Amino acid sequence: HNLTITQGKLFFHYNPKLCLSEIHKMEEVSGTKGRQERNDIALKTNGDQASCENELLKFSYIRTSFDKILLRWEPYWPPDFRDLLGFMLFYKEAPYQNVTEFDGQDACGSNSWTVVDIDPPLRSNDPKSQNHPGWLMRGLKPWTQYAIFVKTLVTFSDERRTYGAKSDIIYVQTDATNPSVPLDPISVSNSSSQIILKWKPPSDPNGNITHYLVFWERQAEDSELFELDYCLKGLKLPSRTWSPPFESEDSQKHNQSEYEDSAGECCSCPKTDSQILKELEESSFRKTFEDYLHNVVFVPRKTSSGTGAEDPRPSRKRRSLGDVGNVTVAVPTVAAFPNTSSTSVPTSPEEHRPFEKVVNKESLVISGLRHFTGYRIELQACNQDTPEERCSVAAYVSARTMPEAKADDIVGPVTHEIFENNVVHLMWQEPKEPNGLIVLYEVSYRRYGDEELHLCVSRKHFALERGCRLRGLSPGNYSVRIRATSLAGNGSWTEPTYFYVTDYLDVPSNIA
């Protein structure tokens, strides 16, 4: 807008934040220059609390790290170098490059900038070799853009010569660093050979998330399962459950009422301010606690030095998902009996873990797994792929695949051998790939016309006998059925096997 004052003059007093240069501009645009008398524009009460600059400061050096910015700028000295009290560095987070010096300023003089007072450097006698002032900004957020400017702080001049310097606002972004852990990993099994893994992005990506790394490792069953005799009275049979499938998407929606109208769909109840505040506090606490764990609990591995020492970490090797089922080394339970199943799973520490690289999504279907087997899954978020990966501390989750139908069934015939004193040795093959492992066998036998009897055969007993022995049988026709019990439950009964026990007292003698 054009402003013209045809008559009258300007009068400025007691404006401590208004620089004289701005008042002189007002004289020019209003056409009143030359009308004012000496005392109409006070030299001592206008701009006496402001830094009124008329020179431009330029930054000469900028260096960044993930949490620091090192700045240096060209030296500046007023005509009387004693008038320079120091520099004021202003900075704040700036997602967009549209910041002005006066953003967030209120009537009390406060604003949204963080201000650092910096002492002037030592003055050199040689004007050509003056030290460049600077400042190291610490405690910054990774991968965050900051708006920065600097200006001088000078003393009051009796001659009211307006001098000083100020830089333009520059924008500097800190470097990326390792992201925080992925949030809320959930693993479920939808079949006997697959596990579905879902997660949420890290709360602090500290860069642009480029991919996720998912490692999985087959877990050995508890050692007590191999040692305890679950045929003993009072000892509860062990059981394991597989990871249940995901709930429906509708039930997972946030901010939804727990109660549904019987007449149909209901609208979600909005969260109160107290609920939102509580969630923010919980989120802040979780982030602080995660940072504490990362800094205190997890110790970084030592990389190899120039002395030739090897990095103890196993090298990563990509495998196809079809090879995942046989990740671990199978060892027989008892070496003397080769027909026992290889369900003991000690994992070799030198073995390469299978892994998958996930790009542009937060889910993965891990296939080719062994049925009813526990897996430990390790999830890392990465925001750099080359020249070397920059990934987060791992988040861990466990899951067990679903049982395989008929995996616990005894394959092959049940054979028998009759000894003296009416002892019958029953023999059968253990299931080759049971659900988890076989903890015991149930032997059901009966003599024709009598009630059915049951015998429990422990895992250890089966390994020693290759089956079991029935003792003290009365003469007669017998039928026997056997079924295995694994961590997933009972298998199917075998087809009945028949044998006849004679009275050993009636056996004919070869003595003449």
Rank of each mutant, 00 (worst) to 15 (best):
F246M: 14
R286A: 03
T333M: 14
A484M: 10
G374M: 05
H294M: 10
N435M: 00
P434T: 06
S305M: 12
K271I: 05
I366H: 01
P245G: 07
S367R: 06
C231I: 01
V296W: 15
N422S: 11
E388G: 15
F499N: 01
A336P: 13
F226C: 09
H416N: 14
E388F: 04
A407D: 05
V359Q: 11
S304L: 06
S458A: 10
R483V: 05
V359M: 14
F337W: 08
T272N: 02
S479G: 08
D250Q: 13
T210G: 09
V214T: 08
V214F: 14
D250A: 11
V331I: 08
L232E: 06
S458E: 08
K302M: 12
P508R: 02
T210L: 08
R353K: 04
A399T: 05
V424P: 08
E404N: 08
E265T: 13
Q429R: 03
S304N: 14
H294N: 03
D229W: 12
V439W: 12
N339C: 10
S348W: 09
A484I: 15
G234W: 06
V507M: 11
T343A: 14
W216V: 06
F246I: 06
T494V: 14
T373L: 07
C391L: 05
P300K: 04
E281I: 15
R390C: 07
H425P: 02
L453Y: 15
V324F: 09
V299L: 02
T303W: 11
Y230C: 14
T415Y: 09
L453F: 04
R370V: 07
A335W: 13
Y292S: 03
F246G: 13
G489P: 03
Q219T: 04
H425E: 13
L455H: 10
G472S: 07
T401G: 02
Q219H: 11
G308L: 15
Q252P: 09
G449Q: 07
D503S: 09
T386L: 03
S274H: 05
E221L: 11
D273M: 06
N295L: 02
K287M: 02
A405T: 10
V214L: 10
K287D: 02
H425W: 06
S320T: 13
L455N: 13
R319N: 12
R471V: 03
K406E: 10
D385H: 15
D450L: 05
T328V: 14
P238C: 02
G436R: 15
F215S: 08
L277W: 09
V457I: 10
C267K: 03
R447A: 11
V327L: 10
Y441K: 00
D506S: 10
V297N: 02
V324Y: 02
R286V: 03
R466P: 06
P431Y: 01
Y448H: 13
D273F: 14
E362V: 11
Q275G: 04
L379T: 06
T497E: 08
S274W: 10
E247F: 12
C231T: 01
N383F: 02
V393T: 04
F289D: 05
G306F: 09
C266A: 15
A394K: 04
R318G: 08
S479D: 05
I276W: 05
I366M: 11
N383E: 01
D409F: 11
V329M: 11
K460L: 12
K317R: 11
V414E: 03
S458D: 04
S392G: 03
R390E: 02
F419W: 15
S274L: 06
L379K: 00
G264F: 04
A484E: 15
V296E: 09
A395F: 05
R319L: 06
E224H: 13
S363Y: 10
R301N: 04
A309E: 07
L455E: 04
P205H: 02
F246Q: 14
L237T: 03
D261F: 14
L487E: 06
H211C: 04
R446P: 00
S283V: 10
L364V: 07
S248A: 12
N255R: 03
C468W: 08
E356V: 13
Y448K: 13
L321E: 10
T307I: 07
D291W: 02
F419R: 11
I209E: 11
S284T: 13
K317A: 12
V480S: 06
A484G: 12
S458L: 07
D273G: 05
P314F: 15
S479C: 05
Y396C: 09
F215R: 07
I377P: 01
L213R: 15
I410H: 15
S257F: 10
H254T: 10
H416G: 09
A488V: 11
A484H: 00
T241F: 13
V331N: 13
L232G: 13
S342T: 05
F372Y: 09
V296G: 14
S243A: 08
S251E: 14
P496G: 14
E282S: 05
Y230W: 13
P349L: 09
A330M: 09
D222T: 09
V358S: 03
E281W: 04
H352I: 07
I418M: 02
E249R: 04
I418K: 15
A405P: 03
V443P: 01
P244T: 09
T307W: 13
Y396D: 01
R400S: 07
D323W: 12
R466H: 11
E388L: 14
Y441H: 03
H461C: 12
K317E: 15
D250P: 07
T340P: 11
S458V: 05
P312I: 15
P312N: 10
E417Q: 11
V457R: 14
K432L: 09
S320M: 07
C231P: 01
T502H: 13
P245Y: 13
I366D: 00
T288I: 15
P338G: 10
L277M: 15
V358K: 06
R353N: 13
Y500P: 08
K236D: 02
S305H: 11
L213H: 14
V423H: 02
G264E: 11
V423Q: 14
